[in-house]
């Protein structure tokens, strides 16, 4: 690479990094600002204060701890469901032959195209009939039912299983492994990267989801973080520091998860149909 080329290359990278990072630094900075500094353009607060954090941990109802616990519980539950069902179905569609496979897979692909908003009315009616729209703990079940399975995850998992070499399976078959052992002992361990990808993307999607929680969760003690942010924004319109404190606190877990899991995500190989 020539020097000019190298410099322009790096300045492009750095410019785009600034575009992606600075807005977040602003929200971090705002969360430490006293109210009268919010509208000033300084990035480092003149008089930094923890007041906003004291507010979100103590004063708001429900407080940050409750919102966080709910978000974590719901996101983890949905991750477990997605992993189990996507692995099972993805494996069957990729590695097993059975009558009706293509038709059923087409149904799965079709499900990917059904917008969540189309499900809004009938799903809600159904949940009401099942008695899951209430202020008790069974209200969580409604969220788990809505989000039990994802066609996109099945698709991703299938594509990954398609790329696995047949030899691996054959070797285990010669050793006399049954289909289920084959799945749990050979396929799953080798699918760690795609499992991690599905887990991280599902966690992120559920953690950030605003649409369903705002419709389904009836009691404030069940609310999740994004819903809490919106509620809080409604109540405290322009009291930016606590809102930004919530934004920061709700982004940190996702950031940590991503930092930890990024090597898995990067290793996911999207299936290439060219091979096989």
């Amino acid at each position: 690479m020539s020097k000019v080329r190298k410099y322009s290359f790096y300045s492009l990278l750095i410019f785009y990094s600034i575009l992606t990072i600075v807005p977040f630094l602003w929200s971090l900075s705002t969360s430490f600002k006293p109210s009268d500094e919010v509208y000033q353009s300084n990035l480092i607060p003149d008089q930094p204060t923890m007041k906003a954090y004291a507010t979100v941990f103590g004063k708001i109802q429900p407080n940050f701890q409750t919102l966080f616990a709910n978000s974590l519980f719901i996101a983890c539950g949905v991750v477990v469901l997605h992993l189990i069902f996507a692995a099972l179905a993805g494996y069957a569609f990729a590695r097993l032959r059975f009558p009706g496979r293509d038709v059923l897979f087409f149904v799965v692909l079709g499900c990917m195209m059904i917008p969540d908003q189309l499900r809004l009315v009938p799903m809600y009616q159904l949940l009401v009939k099942m008695g899951l729209i209430n202020t008790g703990p069974s209200n969580y079940l409604a969220i788990f039912l809505i989000k039990a399975i994802s066609a996109a995850d099945v698709f991703l998992m299938r594509q990954y299983f398609l790329t696995m070499p047949k030899e691996m399976e054959d070797a285990a078959k010669i050793d006399g492994a049954g289909p289920f052992q084959l799945f749990t002992r050979v396929m799953l361990p080798n699918a760690a990267p795609v499992l991690a990808t599905v887990a991280i993307l599902t966690f992120q999607g559920t953690w950030n989801d605003l649409f369903w929680p705002s419709i389904v969760l009836q009691s404030p003690s069940h609310w999740t973080l994004p819903f809490g942010i919106l509620q809080f924004k409604g109540q405290f319109s322009t009291d930016w520091p606590p809102i930004m404190a919530l934004v920061v606190l709700s982004t940190v877990p996702i950031l940590a998860l991503y930092t930890f899991g990024q090597r898995y995500i990067i290793n996911v190989q999207l299936a290439s149909s060219a091979k096989g």
Binding site: A86, L88, A89, F93, R97, F98, L104, L118, A148
Partner: peptide
């Protein structure tokens, strides 16, 4: 075996997406 693997996921799809649709 394949039907065993896909029974619950497909049931969920049929119920939560196709049925709801």
């Amino acid at each position: 075996v394949a039907y065993g693997f896909i029974s619950i996921p497909m049931a969920l799809f049929l119920f939560l997406s196709v049925g709801i649709f």
